[in-house]
């Protein structure tokens, strides 16, 4: 078999491009559950190589009872469950309305996870999740010595072509000043609260990229 010429690489996903400045986002790892469970992975977290920027896609097939998904992260291959997180989520109304959008806001400080969707029954846009399938994208900046800031969006189904869904966007921060804000390399998904479990085949994948 002949040599592969520059620009004619027949193995575009091969290691000859790994760690290359020309490479795009690299798939670093992920997890998918094979049976209903409240956590992905079921123990510990998914450990990946450190990158400056992480891009995560999450698919939730459904929940056993009304639920929303949350994320925990950590440095040195250990998921951090301390009260080092804050998050803010905004929701736009669903149903079949037409007109000026009023977004509702739910901010939680000093908590132990990132809630990746609005999750509050306390304000006008009451939403603590439901059973329907979801897809989310999350981006996280991972600079050692500074807090880890993330932003995300979520789309959630309604299981009916006759019912339009809600819009979700959010952001959060993971602050570990006492430890020097080390680079994170560990990720875990969980249901936010309550007894809900995520349906089988729910999962997430993590891609990463250094800036140079």
């Amino acid at each position: 078999m002949g040599e592969v010429q520059a620009g004619k690489d027949r193995y575009p996903f091969g290691p000859d491009r790994l760690n290359s400045a020309a490479q795009g986002f690299t798939y670093l790892g992920g997890a998918e559950i094979t049976a209903a469970n409240a956590n992905i992975p079921t123990t510990g977290g998914v450990i990946v190589p450190v990158r400056d920027l992480y891009l995560i896609y999450i698919k939730i097939v459904g929940y056993s009872v009304a639920g929303t998904v949350a994320m925990q992260i950590g440095a040195n291959s250990v998921i951090d469950v301390g009260a080092k997180y804050r998050h803010r989520n905004i929701i736009g109304p669903g149903g079949n309305t037409l007109g000026t959008t009023i977004f509702y806001n739910n901010s939680i400080n000093s908590t132990t996870q990132w809630d990746l969707a609005y999750n509050s029954s306390a304000v006008a846009q009451n939403d603590v999740g439901d059973l329907n399938t979801c897809i989310l994208s999350v981006t996280i900046s991972n600079r050692p010595g500074t807090s880890k800031i993330g932003s995300w969006t979520q789309a959630r189904g309604t299981a009916s072509a006759a019912t339009a869904g809600k819009l979700f966007i959010g952001q959060g921060e993971f602050i570990d000043t006492a430890a020097g804000d080390p680079a994170i390399n560990c990720f875990k998904l969980k249901v936010s609260t309550g007894t809900a479990t995520m349906s089988a085949d729910s999962g997430f994948g993590i891609w990463g990229r250094n800036f140079t």
């Binding site: 007109g99 006759a162 339009a164």
Partner: peptide
């Protein structure tokens, strides 16, 4: 067999307008 929910903020407006379309 589709639904969509779109929001738009036109230049100069701090608000969004919402359109939900079903079926």
């Amino acid at each position: 067999s589709y639904w969509n929910h779109n929001d738009v903020s036109t230049a100069g407006n701090a608000t969004f307008s919402n359109e939900n379309e079903i079926s």
